[in-house]
Write a protein that binds this DNA or RNA. Structure first.
Lengths: 255, 255
DNA sequence: CGAAACTTTGAGCGCATTCAACGCCAGTGG
DNA sequence: CCACTGGCGTTGAATGCGCTCAAAGTTTCG
């Protein structure tokens, strides 16, 4: 069984045989977890990080009034709290959305890997940047996109991410998320989310069944959503970042 | 003149004399920039990072329909694109909001510092985590908080951050932001933002004058906003992160 | 002083919410 | 096999938060 974590890191930096061996050794502490369990709680001091090998999870936060805000989806190959290894406080909660197979990694192990293996370090750093880029894109969506475009954008993103790890075939993919979860991602009520999905269905942009989505025409959905996959930084590893110079403040005004 | 960048990093990791000297040397390429100029454009390949020494800037993205979404405020001491040093593509634009004094740092310089000085590396890593935590909190606010609480929360955050670098006295602080910028941060129209501010003023939670905010009773504003400064990770440097163990999936259910 | 940028106010509309009820489906136990 | 239950999704009606459009007031700056 291939390790999706290693697969994903290999997309983002060149890994040699020793790197892969080290990663394989680090992710050998494997556990099964039910759906709907917390892996880490906001404000706690975990000391252990996880990697999702199978299943879906999410990072989330709760608000005073009982509302929930989903901050990220974790799919196979994604780590959680990996880059928080120098904090003594989790800045968000993490919960499984489906039954999951996860690997536990101690913070010491992570620090050791990051310090001794530059390739791994670079791949982890890259992952952090992707996390941040996704978070930014969600903020844009929730703030400045209409609900239907925002959902379409989210579906495009998930489709792209799942394709990158071979979990989605071209036209359609299985999305084991409830509407309530999508709503808490998009900042909508689940009633309204239901209507938005119905609209997208009526427009022929998606076909949704029980916990699965199929996209008849990806291009059309992407155009509708204004989706540009560039921010996912999937386009090849950056073996050689071009170091161009630039002068400050010469380009143009805002807007 | 003290260097706020070094001050801020020193909050986040212990820096010895050599670290400080190295940082001082790295930030000696200083420039003045007008307000409203772009320091970096989404999708470009900058190759140079900046540190704000004086003034305010922001990270932002534009949407197809002309909308703008502000993703972060950069205050004195904050870096921009520092951690993107291994990307060859900026994932957002950066623009000055006021006249700024900035220092330019080449990516090679950053990489060198991060590689040779563990303390600096740790401080930079810490900064990335704070960036992410703030972004998450904004996502929660824009998605699940009412407009007035969201704005109150944002004002609390900015006040706390400015106090941390000595740019705000206890009861009030100067906030050189236009309502249009606040609106693009909160995902609101500027007309509605004007009303929200008026409501907060009427409720006695803030007193706002021309580009300045004063907060008569910080506690009251924080309570109203549900603000907990923990996510800003300002509470002391993490010289000794406690390494506690934890078992997966034993804590509780979502909600 | 005049122009441009920013802020405020009012009126009307619409997207999204809440509340409530019903349909659907899977699992469970009689 | 059927009734019961709980989670999830859908639909309808009424309310409201926040938006658009438009215009006037206010600062700032050249």
């Amino acid at each position: 069984m291939p390790n999706p974590f290693i697969q994903k890191l290999a997309l983002r930096a060149h890994l040699d045989a020793q790197d892969i061996e080290a990663l394989r050794g680090a992710t050998c502490d494997v556990t099964q977890v039910d759906a709907g369990r917390d892996l880490s709680l906001d404000g706690s001091t975990p000391g252990v990080a996880y990697v999702i090998l199978e299943g879906f999870a999410c990072r989330y936060k709760l608000v005073d009034d009982g509302g929930r805000s989903i901050l990220a989806y974790l799919v196979p190959g994604d780590g959680c709290d990996l880059h928080a290894s120098l904090l003594n406080r989790a800045i968000n909660s993490v919960a499984t959305l489906t039954p999951c197979t996860i690997a536990s990694i101690s913070y010491q192990m992570i620090k050791g890997l990051a310090a001794s293996r530059p390739n791994i370090f670079r791949a982890l750093w890259w992952s952090v940047l992707v996390d941040e880029a996704v978070l930014q894109e969600w903020l844009v969506g929730i703030g400045r996109r209409s609900a239907d475009r925002q959902i379409a954008h989210l579906l495009c993103e998930l489709l792209t991410r799942l394709q990158a790890i071979g979990l989605a075939t071209e036209p359609d993919y299985r999305l084991p998320l409830t509407q309530s979860e999508l709503a808490d991602t998009a900042g909508l009520s689940n009633i309204h989310l239901s209507r938005v999905l119905a609209d997208l269905r009526k427009a022929g942009l998606i076909k949704s069944g029980r916990k699965s989505i199929s996209v008849p025409d990806i291009r059309r959905l992407q155009t509708f959503a204004g989706f540009d996959p560039g921010y996912l930084l999937l386009s090849g590893p950056n073996a050689n970042p071009t170091e161009l110079g630039a002068l400050p403040g010469t380009t143009g005004l805002i807007r």
